[in-house]
Amino acid sequence: MAGFKSTDKYIATRDLEVAVNAAVTLQRPLLVKGEPGTGKTVLAHEIAGALGLPLIEWHVKSTTKAQQGLYEYDAVSRLRDGQLGDPRVHDIGNYIVRGKLWDAFEADEQVVVLIDEVDKADIEFPNDLLLELDRMQFFVYETRKTIVAKHRPVIIITSNNEKELPDAFLRRCFFHYIRFPDRPTMEMIVQAHYPDIRKDLAREALNVFFQVRDVPGLKKKPATSELLDWLKLLMVEDMPIEVLRSNEKQVVIPPLYGALLKNEQDVHLFERLAFLARRGA
């Protein structure tokens, strides 16, 4: 089997590779957690790409029910059809709407399923999917049919830790926590995304970036995705490198900070720090 490795677009650390390969080999779901913006969702795309399989995405919201991933019974249109005398009303199967997991189970080849941000949903959501994810089958009550997966899909589940997941659910998964990349890894990531970036620009920008992350009291620390956006902006604007360069210790507001700092308190914090630094000098 091909196995999952870092690609030229996505830098995976060795521990992530092991976790993914374990999940793929044993056909169990992989639960991925980590700071926002460290590439949890992108991971599923990369796995699908690396294994050459189609990807089915299921984005979970606070109102999503587990049942919606399997199927939904559209009773309202059946009621309407019944009142209009539509002949389709006699076959309940006409009103069963397939969900993402049904699609994945019935697919003719193995697929990768991404269940994104599972913690957004109700606390019962993971519990309701236990059997489905374990046996990869479910029962359609209305038509008395059991849907069994033709090929057990590779399932990637991401979580932002807003809710605790039940133990029984966790038992069935492999788990990986994506740590915030250290500097060498970050350099590789930047290189992977922007191969033609100027070396000095990348270095100075990373200096500023890690400096920004180290500022105590930030509400939302910028993460990988913010860094990549910001670098792109810097490249598009063709920023002179001197703007990024600063004396050690002195805090400056980075140019085009809108890509890095995502709320006004953080921007204020920076303005204050810059002011203090100027006055100190």
Binding site: R14, D15, V18, A19, A22, A23, L30, L31, K33, N161, L165, D167, L170, R171, C173, F174, F175, H176, Y177
Partner: peptide, 18 residues
């Protein structure tokens, strides 16, 4: 090292316990 990563992915289910 791979064994360590594998054991971690299998036995630990919450970053609190890492």
């Amino acid at each position: 090292e791979d064994f360590y990563f594998l054991a971690r992915a299998t036995l630990v289910k919450d970053e609190r316990h890492l």
